[in-house]
């Protein structure tokens, strides 16, 4: 165990970081994988995180846990990744939102025509197969939509923070969120969840 609160004297930074790869690799990978669309990119981001941690090892004050420190580094790496991709914009989506909106409305019609089992959010999260479907839908989102959606609806970040960190306008944010939610809802319904309910 790479306990950073211990009075470390024997292990080199490389050894300690290698232990952290064992200890927190899964968690960091999960964190990254929730936020980017490919395994390769998630692995790269986790790798860059550990390289940064190794370089900054002497600066780490050990006031927070290693997990918190590493997640914080990874989070910044992910934001950097999306900032670098900024040239991708709404104009890259030629439907202008029309297709998404229409499909969302059609999905709703489908729901109303279907008498089916109604699953509530807790039941969905408890079932592995359903969680995998959620992930497939998340992976199908264009990256820009995904990043905004994840920050807002998974991390529960404020709108102001997201706009500032990703350098986008509030109106751009609203359109991205609407399209992301519509695409996810559509995907979710098409993949066999014919009814969503809060009840």
């Amino acid at each position: 165990m790479a306990d950073l609160n211990k009075t470390a004297e024997s292990e080199s930074p490389l050894e300690e970081i290698s232990e952290l790869v064992e200890e927190h690799g899964d968690l960091l990978y999960r964190f990254a994988r929730n936020r980017v669309n490919s395994h390769e990119l998630a692995e790269d981001l986790v790798q860059i995180t550990f390289i940064s941690a190794l370089k900054d090892w002497e600066c780490f004050r050990r006031e927070s846990s290693a997990k918190t420190w590493l997640v914080s580094i990874l989070r910044h790496k992910i934001i950097d990744h999306y900032r670098r991709k900024k040239p991708e914009s709404l104009e890259d989506y030629p439907d202008g939102g029309e297709v998404v909106t229409q499909s969302a409305i059609e999905s709703t019609e489908m729901v109303q025509d279907t008498e089916s089992i109604r699953l509530n959010p807790e039941e969905i999260l408890e079932q592995k197969e359903l969680r995998l479907t959620l992930r497939e839908c998340l992976d199908a989102l264009p990256e820009r939509f995904r990043q905004v959606f994840v920050m807002r609806d998974i991390e529960n970040e404020s709108t102001e923070t997201i706009c500032r960190e990703l350098d986008i306008s509030a109106s751009n944010f609203s359109v991205l969120m609407f399209r992301a939610r519509s695409l996810l809802k559509d995907c979710f319904l098409k993949k066999g969840f014919p009814s969503l309910s809060l009840k």
Binding site: R30, N34, E122, L184, S197
Partner: peptide, 24 residues
């Protein structure tokens, strides 16, 4: 109703216990 349900679902998705199948 669907949008609110989806939001609730995804807010729970980052919980590590809900993602144990994803490993490095």
């Amino acid at each position: 109703e669907q949008m609110l349900a989806l939001r609730k679902i995804f807010l729970g998705l980052d919980d590590a216990s809900a993602n144990e199948e994803i490993k490095l």
